Amino acid sequence: MRELDKLDKEIIMLLQEDARYSNTFIAQKLEVSEGTVRSRVNRMLEEQVFEFVIHSKPEKIGLSVSAIIFICTELGYQDKAANELSRQPEVRFVSVFSGPYDLIIQAYFSSNDKLVEFINQKLSNIEGISSVSVSIELKKYKDSFNYAEF
C-alpha cells in the first residue's frame, strides 16, 4: 500500500462527512476530475484504507441495551475465545487491550434479559473464558466513525 497523499485524505474526509457524496460532487469540491476521484476511491477500497458500511442506530432497530463486556481468559485461550466471540451476532466489536482484561467486546441486545441470556448461555460455553465483567451503557454522548482530520 502506498502512503496516502493530501488528495486521498481530502477525499476520505469528504466521504466521512457524507458517504453518499458522488464522485462528481467530490471532484468539483476538490477541483479535480471525476476520473481522478473514482480511481483514488477504487484504489483505497482495494487497499482496504476504508470500507462503506451501513451504521444503523441500534436503539432504532430494537437494540436498546448496549454493553461493554470485559473478559479474562485462561492462558493460551485468548485467540480461540476472540474468534468465537467474533462469530456471535450480538457482538459488534472484539479486541485485545492491555490492562487487567484479555478481551473487551461491545454487544447489543433487545433487553436486559437477552444480555443475561448471552452471558449465561453463550459466554459460559466458550472454552477458555474464566470471568466476565459487564458495563451497560446508560447515556450516549458520541458514536461516530469520523476521525480527527489528518
Rank of each mutant, 00 (worst) to 15 (best):
F25A: 13
E31A: 12
R20S: 11
V49S: 07
D113T: 15
I68N: 09
K139S: 09
S86H: 12
P58T: 10
E90A: 12
K140C: 07
Y101E: 05
I126V: 12
G62V: 10
I104F: 03
E31R: 14
Q16A: 10
D143C: 02
L85R: 04
E17D: 12
P58D: 07
S66G: 11
N42R: 05
F52S: 11
V41P: 00
F52I: 15
A27N: 02
I12P: 01
S39Q: 08
L30W: 01
I105Q: 03
A82F: 03
E90G: 02
K114I: 06
I119D: 05
D79I: 15
E127L: 12
V37Y: 00
K122I: 14
I119R: 03
A148S: 12
T36Q: 03
I26S: 01
T24A: 14
Y141L: 07
L63C: 05
D18I: 09
K142T: 12
S56V: 15
F93E: 13
T73W: 05
F97N: 13
N83D: 13
I129W: 03
R40L: 00
S124C: 05
K29R: 09
V116I: 10
F97P: 11
A19E: 09
L14D: 04
M13Y: 10
L138D: 10
K139I: 06
E137P: 03
S98G: 09
I26Q: 00
E51W: 13
A19I: 15
F145A: 12
G35H: 00
M13Q: 13
K122Y: 03
N83P: 06
V94E: 08
F93Y: 14
V132F: 01
V53E: 14
L75H: 15
R92P: 06
G62K: 09
I104K: 10
L7D: 04
S111D: 08
I61C: 07
F52H: 14
A27G: 07
I104D: 04
S131L: 05
K29H: 04
S66T: 15
P100G: 04
S135Y: 04
C72Y: 09
L138S: 09
Q16L: 11
